[in-house]
Amino acid sequence: MVETVAFGGVETPLGTVMVAMTERGLAATGFRDGPEARARVRERLGLAEADDPGRTAGVLAELAAYFAGEAKTFEVPIDWRLTSRTQRRVLGTLYARVPYGQAVTYGELAEMSGGGIPARAIGSIMGSNPIPIVVPCHRVVAGDGLGGFSGGAGVEAKRWLLTLEGYLQPTLDWEM
């Protein structure tokens, strides 16, 4: 059987979120959708594109429910192939151990991931996360503030996601 990747997009308050599903599971999400974004993911995966809306329907529904404040977990299987062994260890720890509405510092995640990874490397791993939102890199914060965020509108997207999850209090102009 030849592996393929199917794409879909869901409208959110942060823009259209793209998903890329292989036969194994969710391989990538992105804060931008379109032909260029999909081509980059397709190239990184080395897979042909499949026109298979049924493959992406489940994760798109889960994301829509998450952004509507109706879902706190994701059930979609994860395809970790776009991560290195170290990234997989750190992102897998984050995915398994930092639930909705909570956050950890870069240093705490380094410790939780089994040591040997300096806290300063955690930021790079979060910035290269191929599956943001579902693998919640927005839940990793600096010891003295939010830290950075490379998705969507940057730190404002991170602030919005943490507010949605109840980790941060909404500001007067916050809209879901």
Rank of each mutant, 00 (worst) to 15 (best):
P53L: 13
G54A: 14
G54E: 15
R55M: 08
T56Y: 00
A57M: 07
A57T: 03
G58T: 05
V59K: 01
V59M: 03
L60T: 00
L60C: 04
A61D: 14
A61Y: 05
E62A: 02
L63F: 04
L63M: 06
A64W: 00
A64T: 03
Y66W: 11
F67W: 11
F67G: 09
F67V: 08
F67P: 04
A68S: 12
A68T: 05
G69Q: 14
G69Y: 12
E70T: 01
A71E: 10
A71G: 03
K72I: 03
V76D: 05
V76K: 03
P77V: 11
D79P: 02
D79Y: 08
W80K: 13
W80I: 00
R81M: 13
L82Q: 14
S84C: 13
S84G: 14
R85I: 07
R85V: 12
T86G: 06
R88T: 01
V90I: 13
L91C: 10
L91A: 05
G92R: 03
Y95F: 14
A96P: 00
Y100E: 07
G101N: 04
Q102R: 15
Q102Y: 06
V104Y: 00
T105M: 06
E108M: 00
E108A: 09
L109H: 05
A110Y: 01
E111H: 03
M112K: 01
M112W: 02
S113L: 01
G116Y: 09
G116N: 08
I117C: 05
I117Y: 04
P118C: 06
P118M: 11
R120Y: 14
A121N: 11
I122M: 07
G123D: 13
G123F: 04
S124K: 14
S124P: 00
I125Y: 12
G127A: 15
S128H: 11
P130N: 13
I131V: 15
P132W: 06
P132L: 12
I133D: 12
V135Q: 02
V135I: 15
P136N: 09
P136L: 05
C137I: 02
C137Q: 10
H138K: 09
R139I: 05
R139C: 07
R139D: 10
V140L: 10
V140S: 03
V141C: 10
A142R: 14
A142I: 05
D144K: 09
G145V: 06
L146R: 07
L146A: 09
L146M: 11
G147Q: 11
G147H: 12
G147Y: 04
F149Q: 01
F149V: 01
F149A: 02
G151S: 13
G152K: 09
A153L: 12
G154L: 13
G154H: 11
V155F: 04
V155L: 08
V155G: 07
V155C: 04
A157L: 05
K158C: 10
K158D: 09
K158H: 11
K158N: 05
K158P: 07
W160A: 08
L161V: 13
L161A: 09
T163K: 13
L164C: 06
L164W: 03
E165N: 09
Y167M: 08
L168T: 07
T171D: 15
T171R: 15
